[in-house]
Design a protein around this nucleic acid. Structure first.
Length: 556
RNA sequence: GCCGAUGUAGCUCAGCUGGUUAGAGCGAGGGAUUCAUAAGCCCUAGGUCGGCGGUUCGAAUCCGCCCAUCGGCACCA
């Protein structure tokens, strides 16, 4: 029995509006989650929102609302977008939920008890206007003047609680040496190791200059720095610190407003929560934390060190993807080339949600290089892969079965010929690629199968054979083999194209796939679902046009 | 500035430890067909492998320098 799979996205900062960056991370995670469920693995797929910090406090003040009110509105927006994109997350965690804040306090207490968090003094060059500190080198670069106001920086110090990151250097290096696949892609791994070699400094985990955060236990002058709070969501969602919260006596949240939005049952009484968390604990350690490259350091170094201090197992893998750029330019709001929610909506409305997922998953910046978002490229990808290959292949076989076999799956005297083995190979490739988070390769395996079917039809020419009734058995074999192979390819494509492949599975095999990769479920019999032989002879086969040929979307 | 990466056909990229005429997909051009969503199939790209220099019998593949692009350099979510 394979391990349960815990897949996470970063929790999204509520100060942002949803854009392609969020959509991308979430969608590729969703593809993997669905791919795992399809294989019969038990999956817990988590996403959520990060709601604390000075920026949120500042924005809220500027708008004359409370930080919680702002967070509520924007968290709701993120949740709306998840539903819009049919994301199969199993939970949505918000860092203002008591279930989270309580456990964060417990973890902080535990870290303190173990000496991993201690009180210290920080001093540096402070910019009064910006309310931020600069490092010595940076301050020198700035000639000890604020880059914004030009006013002189002042030497200031403040008392903070520190996480003793420096003490974990050796253990982290050991861990990295033993786990060369921990950080993906490999270039990022080298980056982190290089930086690790330069040495680690302790990191402050509290702030005193604003109040919108989780109060530091037993010292109310401090709030927990938002980053630390945010990282802990991966543990709190599974309730890993729930026993700690109980044992350390963190009964309620002081000074931290409870949120109104929540997942099912997550604002329930302790007994219910305890039960829920018991059922989730086995998902740890995480199978993959999917993140963007800008937050790699926190996930690859600080988070593992905190887990070491908490004596929890470390995640199996961190996958740091790169960024989308747009039309060859770095995306920026001022440039007007930012792929925001409105732009995404326009593409989804024009090409369909599955097509959007396909473009994200197969053309995105999954590896070290940034990817360019271009309407023409989107259109070409849609047309070449989905219309001309997937759609057309199903269409021509469906049409021939309608014409020559009365619209039902014919018998095959050849028992599949070489196709069951070819399907088997594609399945193996697909599984390996999915495991390696190589979505491109995972998509290519079934696509290749369809190319082979196109070639098979081209060479055997069933449409010519059909003109002589004597060839009926051969025609039936060819079409049966083609239809069965297309169905198998469709199953493998389902994590990418859940809606359309459901239609295909229904049209070519009589039963939809739906639930097998949706949230909270999994496929009990993957081997049977992807079996070439699954559909029964005589089942009706419908001709269908999965992906209509359409004109390129008008640019905004 | 420091550390690291990348620079191969119009586009996106393969080319591991050096060795015959440098590859794939997409796009573009041409052709034969019709089961199919004008899809599929066949043929076609002659690209100084960023530049210069070096090592070698021989380099896209090793070394040096230069140019360009990109990433990291910690309190930034």
């Amino acid at each position: 029995m394979s391990r349960p799979v815990y897949i996470t996205t970063p929790i999204y900062y509520v100060n942002d509006r949803p854009h392609i960056g969020h959509a991308y991370t979430t969608m590729i995670s969703d593809v993997v989650a669905r791919g795992c469920r399809l294989q019969g693995r038990t999956v817990f797929f988590l996403t959520g929102t990060d709601e604390h910090g000075a920026k949120v406090e500042k924005s809220a003040t500027a708008r004359g609302v409370t930080p919680q009110a702002l967070a509520d509105v924007n968290a709701a927006e993120f949740q709306r977008v998840l539903r819009l994109f049919d994301i199969s997350n199993d939970d949505f965690i918000r860092t203002t939920q008591p279930r989270h804040t309580r456990q964060v306090q417990a973890m902080i207490k535990a870290l303190q008890a173990r000496g991993a968090i201690t009180l210290g003094t920080f001093s540096g060059w402070y910019d009064e206007g910006q309310e931020e500190y600069y490092t010595e080198t940076r301050a020198k670069e700035l000639d000890y003047k604020s880059p914004i106001s030009g006013k002189s920086l002042i030497r200031a110090s403040e008392e903070n609680y520190y996480f003793r990151l420096s003490e974990f250097q050796g253990r982290l290096e050991e861990f990295f040496n033993a786990n060369p696949d921990f950080i993906q892609p490999s270039g990022r791994f080298n980056e982190v190791r290089g930086r690790l070699r330069e040495g680690l400094q302790d990191v402050p985990v509290t702030r005193t200059n604003f109040s919108w955060g989780i109060p530091f236990p037993d010292d109310k002058r401090h709030v927990i720095y938002v980053w630390i709070d945010a990282l802990m969501n991966y543990a709190s969602a599974l309730g890993l610190a729930w026993p700690l919260a109980r044992d350390l006596g963190v009964p309620s949240i002081e000074g931290c407003a409870g949120s109104t939005a929540s997942g099912a049952g997550l604002e329930s009484d302790d007994a219910t929560l305890a039960q829920l968390y018991e059922s989730r604990a086995h998902f740890w350690p995480a199978h993959t934390h999917v993140i963007g490259k800008e937050i790699l350091w926190f996930h690859a170094v600080i988070w593992p060190a905190m887990l070491m201090a908490l004596e929890l197992p470390l995640p199996k893998r961190i996958h740091a993807h790169s960024f989308w750029i747009a039309d060859g330019q770095k995306m920026s709001k001022s440039m007007g080339n930012f792929v925001d929610l409105e732009t995404i909506d326009r593409f989804v409305a024009h090409y369909g949600l599955d097509a959007w997922r396909w473009y994200m998953a197969t053309q995105g910046p999954l590896q070290a290089a940034d990817a360019d978002f271009r309407a023409s490229h989107f259109h070409e990808t849609y047309t070449a892969d989905l219309v001309n290959l997937v759609g057309n292949c199903a269409s021509r076989v469906g049409a021939m079965i309608a014409k020559y076999c009365g619209g039902t799956l014919p018998d095959d005297a050849e028992r599949g010929g070489e196709w069951p083995i070819r399907c088997e190979k594609a399945i193996v490739q697909w599984r390996e690629a999915m495991d390696a988070f190589d979505l491109n390769a995972a998509a290519r395996a079934p696509l290749e199968l369809l190319r082979e079917i196109d070639a098979f039809i081209h060479h055997t020419e069933p449409f010519k054979l059909a003109k002589d009734p004597a060839n009926l058995a051969r025609v039936e074999s060819i079409l049966s083999q083609s239809a069965r192979t297309i169905r198998v390819a469709g199953v493998l494509l389902a994590p990418f194209l859940p809606t359309k492949m459901d239609e295909l599975a229904t049209a070519f095999g009589g039963s939809a796939l739906g639930p097998v990769h949706a949230a909270g479920s999994h496929c009990n019999e993957f081997d049977s679902v992807v079996s070439f032989h699954l559909p029964k002879v005589g089942v009706s086969i419908a001709k269908l046009a999965l992906f209509p040929r359409i004109d390129i979307v008008a640019s905004a």
